[in-house]
């Protein structure tokens, strides 16, 4: 696929791990992207981060080496969103922050513009309350990194409109992604299961029953998982894992989701996984 997609124009809010990775996917497929982060340092780093991630995707043969990437614009304010066809919100996994950002952006774009939240676990319908037009909002749960993992979980909230679902399908087709559309609820499908599994795996390590390497080896060797739960947690970012577990715990009342001490201690110590070089495993450097 070498032709750019002039009909799509994406705005991405939040230039963290997911925001820059989604931007990489989109520009790699020829879509123009505006990437916004209110933190000037994050906005500054974003261009270089996308450039390096584009190279990683090309190295892995997952994005075209030829062709012209889409234009990437970075900035600290989402002022000019009049001509975007879709907005993807990828800010920190805190309900009040996501609600605030979605409220602002929904007031700034034309009615009918697709609004996407990349939340890991917050119900779409809860976030829809903050928007001017709940019908325009749906969830797309991109995996990390989305340019290497081609399947996404699409969450249709009870108030998500047909038009939004159609627009999302068209966008994901342009991005050459495969969508699985599921219903709304805390954690949707993946994180309702995965976050609990990570929490339990961490608790097993905390209880001294197994080392992180042993836990992961069992999942790879016995169950055929490509990556074990704790290496997955390191890849997601342990800070995000704890945030997601809290979202799930608060909304389900199920104590199985209460982040265990091994996780919260690592986050407090600044060991956030791959992105900081240390988590349950040591990571020899970062890609950012």
């Amino acid at each position: 696929m070498t032709n750019p997609q002039p009909q799509h124009r994406l705005a991405i809010l939040g230039a963290g791990v997911m925001g820059t990775a989604i931007a990489t996917l989109a520009v790699g497929r020829g879509l123009p992207v505006t990437l916004v982060d209110t933190d000037p340092a994050a906005a500054d780093r974003a261009g270089e981060s996308v450039r390096q991630q584009l190279r990683l995707a090309q190295l892995m043969g997952k994005l075209p080496r030829g062709g012209t990437p889409g234009e990437l614009t970075t900035g600290t304010s989402a002022a000019d969103l009049a001509d975007v066809t879709a907005v993807v919100e990828a800010v920190t996994e805190r309900a009040e922050l996501k609600a605030k950002v979605l409220a602002e952006v929904s007031a700034a774009v034309a009615p009918g513009t697709l609004l996407v939240t990349n939340t890991s676990a917050i119900p779409v319908d809860e976030l829809a309350d903050a928007t001017a037009r709940p019908a325009d909002l749906l969830g797309i749960h991109f995996m990390n990194p989305p340019y290497l993992i081609r399947t996404v979980e699409v969450i249709r909230g009870p108030r998500t409109g047909e038009a939004a679902l159609a627009a999302a399908t068209e966008l994901l087709t342009a991005l050459e992604m495969t969508a699985v559309v599921v219903g709304d609820g805390p954690g949707f499908v993946i994180n309702r299961i995965l976050q609990r599994m990570i929490n339990e795996a961490a608790r097993i390590v905390e209880d001294g029953l197994a080392t992180p390497a042993q836990v992961d080896e069992l999942f790879r060797g016995c169950l055929g998982h490509q990556t074990g739960p704790l290496a997955t947690a390191d890849l997601i970012g342990l800070d995000n894992v704890v945030d997601s577990l809290r979202v799930l715990h608060e909304r389900t009342g199920d104590d199985g989701y209460e982040p265990c001490a091994a996780l919260t201690a690592k986050v407090a110590a600044g060991e956030h996984g791959r992105k900081t070089g240390q988590g349950f495993f040591e990571h020899g450097g970062t890609t950012r």
């Binding site: 390096q52 190279r55 990683l56 190295l59 892995m60 020899g284 450097g285 890609t287």
Partner: peptide, 10 residues
């Protein structure tokens, strides 16, 4: 991991 390839490039 194959993700290490980018570090090698750099």
């Amino acid at each position: 991991s194959s993700l290490f390839a980018l570090e090698l490039v750099m």
